[in-house]
Design a protein around this nucleic acid. Structure first.
Length: 275
DNA sequence: CACGAGACCTGTTCGC
DNA sequence: TGCGAACAGGTCTCGT
């Protein structure tokens, strides 16, 4: 899936125009066509269609990996999960394979939700903040300090990698950026979160932020046919580099499975924890 | 509470 | 060439 940097890249394009599409704010939703019903999480497809039509898109923001379309009366939350994507095109452009929802907008525009694997979901809600209240902090917010990270790490008994993937712990990290951040911080993915030293926590805080900012700067990673345009994939230090030499020490990058996710790390630069 | 397995899905790549 | 297995950016639910 798109992680925070990919979602941020998409959100900026929807907000300001770009990636081949026009900016959304100011346009009104005139009709909707849902071709895969389960892409709509809430409410029912009927209710969704009835309520969303007629609303105007006021703003586009991001919270964690959610795209938030602020409408005049409600909010449209979109989670792209593994393979979802959003594109803006002129209505009349040819339908693409795996198009799941098309929003017909004023001015002859369409917003299309495309999702080959059908894991993505959209919600139409009255109070988006309430719906997303369970998410952890935004890693790039000023409010997310090294002190807050340290405090949250202290009160868990979990391994660090699955913890960082937990969106209620921190919002926005996924499999790629977690592995990259742990490598930069020189922390083993299986390390017990509560046993990290003060120095390790400080490095992790900096690594999470720098890896996310770098991802955004490079317009995200496009490692397959989705999320075209990003180029962060050319800068991975460990992700999908099993057997290739570590940039730091030259030893081969190792792949293990953690929480059913492929996990890449350097066994020398990210040694097993003490004790 | 923490963790693993299975489910939800389709497409691509890898190994024989 | 063909075919099945493994794998993929995520998250939810259930059982231990």
């Amino acid at each position: 899936m798109p992680e925070l940097p990919e979602v941020e890249t998409i959100v900026r394009a929807l907000r300001e125009g770009g990636r081949g599409g026009e900016a959304l704010p100011g346009h009104r939703i005139e009709a909707v066509d849902v071709s895969w019903a389960r892409s709509v999480a809430e409410p029912s497809v009927e209710g969704f269609t009835r309520q969303v039509v007629g609303q105007r898109i006021e703003a586009v923001t991001r919270r964690g990996k959610f795209v938030v379309l602020h409408l005049d009366r409600q909010a449209l939350l979109i989670h792209l999960r593994m393979s979802g994507d959003l594109r803006v095109e002129s209505t009349g452009e040819q339908t693409q394979p795996h198009d799941r929802i098309r929003f017909f907008l004023s001015g002859g525009l369409s917003l299309v939700f495309n999702d080959p694997r059908k894991f993505g979901r959209v919600w139409l809600v009255d109070d988006w903040q309430n719906t997303l209240a369970g998410l952890g902090p935004e890693p790039l917010d000023e409010a997310f300090t090294v002190g807050e990270l340290a405090q949250r790490l202290r009160v868990t008994r979990r391994m660090i990698k699955p913890l960082l993937l937990d969106q209620t712990f921190l919002a926005g990290l996924g499999n790629i950026y977690t592995d990259e951040a742990l490598h930069l911080a020189r922390i083993h993915p299986l390390a017990p979160a509560w046993k990290l030293s003060t120095e390790q926590v400080a490095r992790l805080w900096g690594a999470i932020r720098s890896v996310l900012m770098e991802g955004i700067r490079r317009n995200g990673a496009s490692i397959d046919w989705v999320y075209r345009g990003g180029e962060f994939q050319h800068h991975f230090l460990v992700y999908q580099r099993a057997g290739m030499p570590c940039q730091g020490c030259g030893s081969p990058i190792q792949r293990i499975v953690v929480g059913q996710r492929g996990t890449y790390f350097c066994p020398v630069c990210q040694p097993p924890w003490e004790g």
